[in-house]
């Protein structure tokens, strides 16, 4: 039976729609023209400007500081949460737990941002790097928990029972059997948390204070108030980082399946 060509055509158009803006952006980052309408030859001038900008370096430092600490905390919390959900899934406590974990995944970012801002204002917590850290962990935990939960669902718990039968303590069986088996899921969750933290704008915008400008906040103000083509260069670098992270996480997801 002959299949219709229509879906294939739509898919090709969708892919073009996805990548055309990105290609033009990358191309423009190498274009020395200030208003990137005409191609004026290959140049790295915007990259040089970017590396010479102290604000960018300060923002990058904040972003990485937050992303690394957020990833560390949310991986520990998220993995424990996934284990709890999987092992004790039937209890009433876990049903409430699941709803709590689920909420950051579905609530629009702006609502999370504003509700956290109000909580910090009401509690008198000064806004800054620390509040950004708290906010980021809050949404990253859920993504880590869901990623690890996916891995747990494929995991055969009789291996842990075998370890216990052979005399391993609960801690030993977790450290030597369970966690190594879950590692691809944990690393994938960590990559996801790291990317989400580096990329987050909306929530950060609400809970950041003076001196806690992150890279997305910096990019936003560059876009909003007089955009020099430096953003093209910065975006291209970010794309390269994301692309590497995606390839790495795909390899991990496929590993040992």
């Amino acid at each position: 039976m002959r299949r219709s060509r229509f879906p294939v055509v739509v898919t090709a158009l969708v892919m073009a729609f996805f990548y055309l803006p990105i290609f033009i952006l990358v191309a423009n980052s190498f274009n020395p023209a200030r208003f990137s309408s005409r191609w004026q030859g290959f140049s790295l001038v915007w990259y040089r400007r970017l590396f010479e900008s102290p604000e960018i370096w300060a923002a990058l430092k904040n972003t990485l500081l937050i992303a690394v600490s957020v990833t560390a905390v949310s991986v520990v919390l998220g993995t424990a949460a996934a284990y709890a959900l999987h092992r004790y899934g039937q209890s009433r406590l876990q049903r409430v737990h699941y709803t709590l974990i689920y909420q950051p995944l579905v609530v629009p970012e702006i609502l999370m941002g504003i509700s956290l801002l109000m909580a910090f204002v009401a509690a008198g917590v000064p806004l800054g790097l620390f509040t950004v850290f708290l906010a980021h962990v809050t949404f990253c935990v859920s993504f880590v928990a869901m990623t690890v939960l996916g891995r747990l669902q494929d995991f055969d718990f009789s291996i842990v029972e075998a370890a216990r039968d052979l005399g391993a303590s609960p801690w030993q069986s977790a450290r030597k059997v369970l966690i190594p088996a879950l590692m691809p899921g944990i690393v994938a969750g960590a990559l996801l948390a790291f990317t989400l933290s580096i990329d987050d704008f909306v929530i950060t915008f609400f809970v950041a204070g003076p001196g806690s400008t992150t890279l997305p906040l910096r990019i936003y103000s560059m876009i909003k108030y007089g955009a020099p083509p430096m953003i093209n260069a910065l975006s291209t670098l970010l794309l390269a980082v994301t692309f590497t992270a995606v390839v790495a996480s795909q390899r991990l997801a496929r590993a040992k399946r």
Binding site: M118, A119, V137
Partner: peptide, 23 residues
């Protein structure tokens, strides 16, 4: 169960449930 549940449970209650009600 409480040991592995409590950390995220408290965190998300404090930073998700309470702030939403606060709105």
């Amino acid at each position: 169960e409480w040991l592995v549940t409590l950390p995220t449970f408290l965190w998300l209650t404090l930073f998700v449930a309470v702030p939403t009600l606060l709105v």
